[in-house]
Simulated scan of single mutants.
Amino acid sequence: MIAEDTHVGMFAGKVALVTGASSGLGEAAALKFAREGAKVVVAARRAEQSARVVERIVELGSEALFVSTDVSRAADVERMVKTAVDKFGRLDYAVNNAGIAGPRFTPIAEVTEAQWDQVMGSNLKGVWLCMKYEIPAMLANGGGAIVNIASIYGLKPSDIGHGPYCTSKHGVVGLTRSAAADYGQMSIRINAIAPGFTLSEMVDPTRPGAAEKYQALVERHSSMKRLGHAEETANAITWLCSDTASYVNGVVLPVDGGSVTRMY
């Protein structure tokens, strides 16, 4: 007789919230949580794309909920967390991934105030707002784990005229480490991922003229000389949320193929 497969996933009975989950890293993380048994809150601005992610989660046998959210708006974020708790009764994990690229190939003195404020609002203020409302929900449940999405440009300067984005991600690193110190003793672990260049809507080498640019970037930033895949980052995210990372708090984990130190 063949034994029945009783595997239900390491997050069975848990609830995960992922912002920016309509595509890319956020979508991959949402699907990974679902495969491991979690119920998933898909938070994003784009309804049609998010609905497809919800459908995929349901096809995997889990439950999902889409909440339209602009993370730069406090009322949206408060509603996002309240809706998650009202629907599923708890919040165990959060991935604060939503963000924008902002101006590229633009020297810092040429960045407009509106551009600066938009990037900081989504990428830095948005992460703070998410934690502001996620943490009380987790405390009410006895604890949890948060993963903020920074960038390799949160650990070093941008080399592509990408100052606002780089500054915002440095801010996410500092915010993560500070929050981890505040709440580690309260059974909430807070860590960050620093992805390298990873295939997504934002990093699409199939666009005209883009392949050569991204090849140059991976030569500079990945010792593996390739772009990453969203699933590779999702694996790191869910590991940080899992019990196997139970003593990991306040770290910023690069997922970038290794830094480049070679001379050839």
Rank of each mutant, 00 (worst) to 15 (best):
Q49Y: 04
Q49C: 05
T261W: 05
A84F: 10
R90G: 06
A210G: 07
G196A: 07
K87M: 12
E36H: 13
A28F: 06
A192G: 07
Y93G: 06
T112K: 10
T6Y: 05
Y183D: 04
H221N: 14
R46T: 14
I146S: 06
G9M: 13
E212M: 13
A74S: 15
G142N: 13
I100K: 03
P157Y: 03
V8A: 14
G184Q: 06
C241K: 02
A211Y: 06
A29T: 15
T69I: 12
R177A: 04
L124V: 11
R104E: 09
A101S: 14
Q115D: 14
S187F: 12
I160E: 04
V203R: 02
Q115G: 04
E110F: 08
I146Y: 07
T19Q: 03
K156G: 10
M131Y: 02
D256V: 01
A234D: 08
N97E: 10
F105D: 15
L17P: 03
G228F: 03
A3I: 10
G144R: 08
S23W: 11
A230P: 12
T206V: 02
I152C: 05
G24S: 14
K32V: 02
C130H: 00
K225S: 07
P254C: 12
E219S: 11
I135D: 01
R189G: 07
L129V: 08
V172K: 03
T233D: 13
C166Q: 14
E59V: 06
E63C: 04
V8C: 12
M186L: 14
V218D: 00
T176S: 09
W239L: 11
A234P: 10
A30V: 09
K87E: 15
E113Q: 13
A64I: 11
E63T: 06
V8D: 12
V173W: 04
D76L: 06
D117Y: 07
G142W: 12
S151I: 00
E27W: 05
P136T: 12
T6L: 14
V71F: 02
F105Q: 15
A38F: 13
N148I: 08
R226N: 06
G171V: 11
A64Q: 01
I160M: 07
H221A: 08
G102N: 01
V111I: 14
E231M: 05
